[in-house]
Amino acid sequence: MNILKNFALGALLATTTLASTSLLAQPAMDMSGMKEKGMSMDMKGMEMSNGEVKKIDTEAQKITLKHGEIKNMDMPGMTMVFRTQDPSLLDNIKVGDKVKFNAEKREGFIVVTAIEAIK
């Protein structure tokens, strides 16, 4: 019976190891040609969305953006208020700026995790 348990445990370990190494061996995302298509990526490799700053509330750490589609959230364009992950994200932008940004759902809120003014 111990031999059967050891065999089953070994088979499980081998399967788990193969599955995890195949995930690690995934090819890197090809980002060539993205600039020409008007797309940009943040450090996480997520496509950034376009928007325009309508209002900034530094005290509440919120920003109102009129934005296009947010693909990673399957959200159509609209104007809405976002929380910010880090209040310093609001330091280098002002009302009226055209921006590229990332947003994610965290703890029940949609949060801007990266933002940059388009020059």
Rank of each mutant, 00 (worst) to 15 (best):
T16H: 05
T16P: 00
T16W: 12
T17E: 05
T17V: 15
A19R: 04
A19Q: 03
A19V: 13
S20M: 13
S20H: 08
S20T: 15
T21P: 07
T21Y: 15
T21V: 15
S22D: 05
S22V: 04
L23E: 05
L23R: 10
L23A: 10
L24N: 11
A25M: 12
Q26G: 06
P27D: 05
P27F: 02
A28P: 02
A28E: 14
M29K: 15
D30T: 11
D30R: 11
D30V: 09
D30M: 05
G33T: 05
M34I: 11
K35R: 07
E36C: 05
G38F: 00
G38S: 03
G38V: 01
M39E: 06
M39R: 09
M39N: 02
M39L: 15
S40C: 04
S40L: 10
D42R: 08
D42I: 04
M43T: 08
M43Q: 13
K44S: 13
K44M: 14
K44A: 14
G45P: 07
M46Y: 09
M46L: 14
M46I: 15
E47G: 04
S49D: 01
S49K: 01
S49E: 02
N50R: 09
N50M: 03
G51Y: 00
G51E: 00
G51H: 01
G51T: 02
E52V: 12
E52P: 00
E52Q: 12
E52H: 04
V53C: 09
V53D: 04
V53K: 04
K54W: 01
K54R: 14
K54L: 12
I56G: 10
D57V: 10
D57S: 12
D57K: 10
T58R: 15
T58E: 14
E59W: 01
E59L: 13
A60W: 10
A60Y: 03
Q61A: 15
Q61I: 09
Q61M: 13
K62V: 08
I63R: 08
T64D: 12
L65F: 04
L65Y: 02
L65A: 07
K66P: 01
K66H: 12
H67F: 02
H67N: 07
E69V: 12
I70R: 01
I70S: 00
I70A: 02
K71C: 00
N72H: 06
N72P: 00
N72I: 04
M73S: 06
M73T: 02
M73K: 08
D74R: 11
D74E: 10
G77T: 10
G77I: 11
M78T: 08
T79N: 08
T79K: 06
T79L: 03
M80F: 05
V81G: 01
V81D: 14
F82E: 05
F82I: 06
F82G: 05
R83N: 14
T84S: 03
T84W: 01
T84E: 01
Q85G: 10
D86G: 02
D86M: 03
D86S: 07
P87W: 08
D91W: 08
N92V: 03
N92Y: 06
N92R: 11
I93P: 03
I93V: 15
I93R: 08
I93Q: 06
K94W: 02
